[in-house]
Amino acid sequence: MNLVSRGALISSDLAASQEIARVTGEYQNHHMILHEGKTSHTFISGAGPHLVLFVKVLSEIPLGWSRKYVREAVSKIEEIIGARAKRSGKEMGFDKNGFQDKLDHALEDLWSK
């Protein structure tokens, strides 16, 4: 399974947990899921509104330490993404000329094998 498909499953896992928390009245801003395995553990955590962080660690590493590491990584990602989100498309070099036409053309191209 490729990274994109795996990402869809990982983010849906987090979203489902958030929804369970919401309907049971336990919703909080930060959500983290831990899957404990025999040889490794995985952490899934939201990192801002659009990103999910997936971390796999060896089971020998203490859970508390891993959890702290994931939380710190999430804070740093949110900081970087937040700063970038404030920039406009023009600043970032978006070329709007003929965007719609080019997109229409690309959509047509999708069906040509």
């Binding site: 994109v4 498909s5 869809a8 849906s12 489902a16 070099g93 978006f94 070329d95 709007k96 000329n97 003929g98 965007f99 080019k102 997109l103 690309a106 959509l107 191209d109 999708l110």
Partner: peptide, 16 residues
């Protein structure tokens, strides 16, 4: 059960 998912890529358009 939950969803079906796929992603399509359109190549580069307007620098994106």
């Amino acid at each position: 059960l939950f969803f079906d998912f796929m992603q399509l890529e359109l190549g580069k358009i307007g620098g994106l």
